[in-house]
Design a protein around this nucleic acid. Structure first.
Lengths: 103, 103
DNA sequence: CGTGTTGCTACAGTATTTGTAGCAAGAGGA
DNA sequence: TCCTCTTGCTACAAATACTGTAGCAACACG
């Protein structure tokens, strides 16, 4: 398992971030936690029954990165994680436009 | 190789997009093409000598998605791809804040 | 005590990614 | 013409990441 975030050698934070978010289910997890906290099982359901192994791995990474935390009501975005999610908003809008351009 | 974009079954464009961008080197490739077109070799150099196999695979996917095109001067973002890149701008700013929060 | 959650892990099979090598096609230069 | 260089791209085996199933201990409710 890649311990340190790839691209971090360059010292450029954006590389480390692109690498972390470029791992499977990372983007999706943040997306699914956008509204409310989810238990590990609920998160798994939300993520199309992705394997718990990889979800756990990603959750650990995202927790170490400070984007996600485990509270009484399950996993949820930290303030930092919520900030990160904000940057997805234009992405969401873009996705809608993109799907129309695909036709 | 995953032919269709995962998550596209849901019909939610954002899922398809999150999945495509969640594959290794996808985000990075778009990032590296942000300023100028790059030849396949130059792109490889920019991407820390990532293997040409996977770069080629990602480039094909990104081309099919309409984000990247191959021109005389190498690979470059399409108008759509440039739109997508715009959504990264807040991500870049976030990355800077994040690296400070990590200390 | 049983029943049901929770977060989390083991493990084997599969898919993806890596690294090295090398291809054919095209653009020069001699 | 032949030689050399670059282009985009691919083969192939080894390494790594991911999947799917099963199941653990800890805690809560009854």
């Amino acid at each position: 398992m890649a311990k340190s975030v790839r691209g971090s050698r360059s010292g450029r934070p954006i590389m480390a971030l692109l690498d972390l978010l470029g791992r499977r289910w990372s983007l999706r997890i943040i997306w699914e936690l956008r509204e409310a906290a989810l238990t590990s099982r609920a998160l798994r359901t939300a993520c199309d029954e992705a394997s718990p192994t990889i979800l756990q791995t990603r959750l650990t990474e995202l927790r170490e990165a400070g984007f996600v935390e485990l509270a009484d009501d399950g996993y949820r975005l930290t303030d930092l994680g919520r900030e990160l999610f904000q940057t997805f908003t234009p992405l969401h809008r873009f996705a809608e436009r993109w799907s129309k351009a695909q036709l």
